[in-house]
């Protein structure tokens, strides 16, 4: 058996494997996209009380762009109304300050400026440590419910290690710090743009 034959055999194996995976990818991608979308809707519905809105959140969206506060790329925000009156907005925020790349969050903020809920939508944090920010793994993310820019006040908006009011995640302080900062930034963004957010149709 010559070297060339071995190389060809390996190349053939790699090509066959790639073909197999590509075919399967083709047949599963629609269903995977559908699952992801359904899951996102479920997350949206978790962070805003159904009594607060009667419109279709997915149809009333804005595209926001603020590299300082919401992340480098434009993000989507969902507006909630009840009887035509604005009640809350859910921002998508991407913070680059995860331990291992970007963390994408849904941050619900009521018209009064209180957090209605926060969920981690996508991340690549360390399994078993940083992923405790996910709701399925621990209740850590729920500590933001009901907070605002005045509760706690600005110098205490941080994890306990930095002298703030929020719990960190054992073994994943950087993750916790990044998310806490992103939530605070979202609150600042909404405060700065409160009128503009609701003016645009």
């Amino acid at each position: 058996m010559t070297t060339l034959r071995r190389v060809l055999l390996l190349a053939f194996l790699a090509a066959a494997g790639t073909a197999l995976v590509a075919t399967l990818h083709h047949y599963t991608q629609d269903r995977i996209a559908y699952n992801q979308e359904a899951w996102r809707i479920e997350q949206l519905e978790q962070i805003i009380d159904p009594a607060r809105y009667d419109n279709d959140l997915l149809l009333d969206t804005l595209t926001l762009h603020d590299p300082e506060l919401l992340g480098a790329e434009p993000v989507t925000a969902y507006r909630a109304y009840r009887d035509g009156e604005p009640t809350a907005i859910i921002l998508t925020a991407v913070t680059p300050r995860g331990y291992n790349g970007n963390i994408t969050l849904f941050i619900g903020i009521s018209i009064d400026g209180d957090i209605t809920g926060v969920r981690v939508i996508a991340h690549q944090e360390t399994p078993g440590l940083g992923d405790r920010a996910e709701i399925g793994k621990s209740n850590w993310i729920k500590q933001f419910d009901g907070t605002s820019l005045t509760q706690p006040t600005l110098p205490r908006w941080g994890v306990k290690k930095d002298g703030g009011d929020f719990d960190q995640i054992t073994g994943a302080t950087i993750t916790a710090r990044g998310i806490t900062e992103a939530v605070q930034h979202a609150l600042i963004y909404v405060e700065q743009h409160q009128d503009a957010l609701w003016e645009t149709p």
Binding site: M1, L9, L13, L24, T28
Partner: peptide, 28 residues
């Protein structure tokens, strides 16, 4: 078919294919 000299990369390709297929199926 697989010569002893190339068996390890060949195994890795086979295993990676099966795992990816399983991952896609579970995802869907």
């Amino acid at each position: 078919m697989i010569a002893p000299e190339i068996r390890l990369p060949a195994f890795v390709i086979i295993i990676a294919c099966f795992v990816t297929a399983l991952e896609l199926t579970t995802h869907a």
